[in-house]
Nucleic acid binder design. Sequence first.
DNA 1: GTCTATATAACGATAGAC
DNA 2: GTCTATCGTTATATAGAC
Lengths: 194, 194
Amino acid sequence: MNKGEKTKQKILDNALVLFSTKGYEATSLKDIASSIEIKAPSIYAHFSSKEVLFEKVTEYVKTDYIEFIRKQAVDLHLFSSKEMLYELLVELNKYFYNTDLGLFIKKFGFVPPEKFKVLLNNMYAETEREIEKLLYTILEGDSKERFVDKQSIVTSFLCILDGTLFYLMNFPYEEYERRLNRTWEVFWNGIVIK
Amino acid sequence: MNKGEKTKQKILDNALVLFSTKGYEATSLKDIASSIEIKAPSIYAHFSSKEVLFEKVTEYVKTDYIEFIRKQAVDLHLFSSKEMLYELLVELNKYFYNTDLGLFIKKFGFVPPEKFKVLLNNMYAETEREIEKLLYTILEGDSKERFVDKQSIVTSFLCILDGTLFYLMNFPYEEYERRLNRTWEVFWNGIVIK
DNA sequence: GTCTATATAACGATAGAC
DNA sequence: GTCTATCGTTATATAGAC
């Protein structure tokens, strides 16, 4: 990676963080530029406008997130379906907690600015499909448990993922963990047929 | 209500809608003013700054939402606990779907701008407490069903409320309904002890 | 590829007439 | 209480030197 590409990547990284914390409108190109110690007009050597920059950040985030989900399919194959579902929920939450990219998805994926609504809804839909595929694999690999229909499991899993993410972002970690585990128990209890 | 108060209320109403759809930064005082056919500086006769205006809108929304939740306690007392929980979930979703105030909570309650984070988190916490009280009343009024512990029910109810709200805002109504019902079934199945 | 200088527009907010 | 005129600031974006 040469110097130009390095700068471009630094712009993407810092734009990601600033957009996520301050919001799109509240983040100026000067904010982004000064965070990597260049001047605002230099950004235009790499991106043709602020809008395009935001779109490129979105692409970057989507690629990374989908890659992460696919990686889970490999990492999780050793456990029982119960353990796998729980681990998947926790790992997804961790991804959102630990990475700047998670913060971006949390901020813009759920309540997108009007300007980028189509773009961001497409991103969400794609990641949802990836998680759905992964859930199907987990559920089909289990012959011990009897489950309610798969569609209900996928839908409610995605639903509690959104809910726990909200807890993760807005409560101290301990409170989040308590809430995650309570919600998980109701979910697991709700999807198995006894 | 005299003319001055009427204008003040119109500013609040229109600011609510514009903030919710465009976001705080992307909404200018001129946008708000021209939507009620006055000029931007006239707003300062009613509110001392844009920040204060946003805070007043937040207060207005909180008051209305909490009143709505309390009203549910009266409206819902005729059904079984299963019907009441389901109706409550649906009614809360409807509130968010049908009113401008719901859009505001959806936009700013879940991912607040840094500037108003404390204010909005307090609003969320207060509404959460109200829903919790209501859930306790519903669950304690039932002697037929056996439930898992109440805390788990409250937490997972709030969790799926957040999740279904996301579905409501980002999918066509029919898809939302399908997802709501699937999630509800897993939830109910998960909180009763068979 | 980064800089300085600048164009152009919009913002929040104030002053003062009516 | 609403207006016009305006201040001071900041934004995105461009031009052109190096």
